[in-house]
Nucleic acid binder design. Structure first.
Lengths: 123, 123
DNA sequence: AATCGTTATTTCTTTAAAAATATAACGATA
DNA sequence: TATCGTTATATTTTTAAAGAAATAACGATT
């Protein structure tokens, strides 16, 4: 009888099945953990720059993520305003909030999958 | 009523849920797509160097992957022989083949998960 | 002992990604 | 119209990862 995985792996090191999820189209990722957190923080702060700063992300990268995300939605999920009383800012649309919620649920299902597979290592 | 994801995403670009899976312990990955393919090729060729070459992977990286993998198993899954009639070579143990098989099945389950989630985007 | 191609390892170089920097445009407000 | 902090964008610099190259050790075979 062939050995089982748990007899091959060094179980004392507590190996786990882990992974990453994202939305892509044409091999290009446009919605993963990064953009999600960014959206959340833009919603809070009203500013791409400030949100990026909180995440220790460069403004440039943040802007690219948002721009890329907007390119994959029927209407922009982040609406920037340049100039204005405080120099400008950005608001996230209700659709963005919907995407965030979707991703939370997706992540929950993925987490369940990973935990199931991790448990499965032991049998 | 809140919009659904399919109404927010630009569905004409055919977005899909995709992801990556691996085994890790202590935040360090030791078994993902790379090592799996490498093991398969070492099994075929009997040589780390040749296997790496086939994958356009540097020998150094291949060796690191294998070394790292061996460090997470109860006994080495790749046994190198330095020197010998053809200069040496490496053989993969039955346990390695078992790991490969495990990963194939894991990947199958993950694929099903991803496809289900991708379909789910449309509803 | 000479040969072979591999393993094992270090060092150097290249490349790519990320980050930092700089600057123009913007428009509500005072 | 002067100010503000932001968006938008290009350019430069830094950093990290990957790759290339070089070298010693190895041992069965001849």
């Amino acid at each position: 009888m062939a050995k089982k995985v748990k007899d091959i792996l060094e179980m004392s090191k507590h190996p786990v099945v882990n992974g990453s999820l994202w939305l892509e189209s044409g091999d290009k990722r446009f919605f993963g953990p990064g953009p999600v957190e960014l959206l959340e923080r833009i919603a809070e702060t009203g500013s791409i720059r400030q949100a990026a700063k909180e995440m220790q992300m460069s403004y440039k990268k943040a802007w690219e993520l948002i721009n890329n995300l907007n390119a994959h939605t029927t209407s922009p999920v982040v609406i920037p305003q340049t100039g204005g009383e405080k120099g400008g800012g950005s608001i996230v649309t209700p659709e963005a909030l919907e995407l965030i919620q979707y991703h939370r649920e997706l992540r929950k299902r993925f987490k369940a999958f990973l935990e199931k597979e991790t448990k499965n290592l032991s049998y």
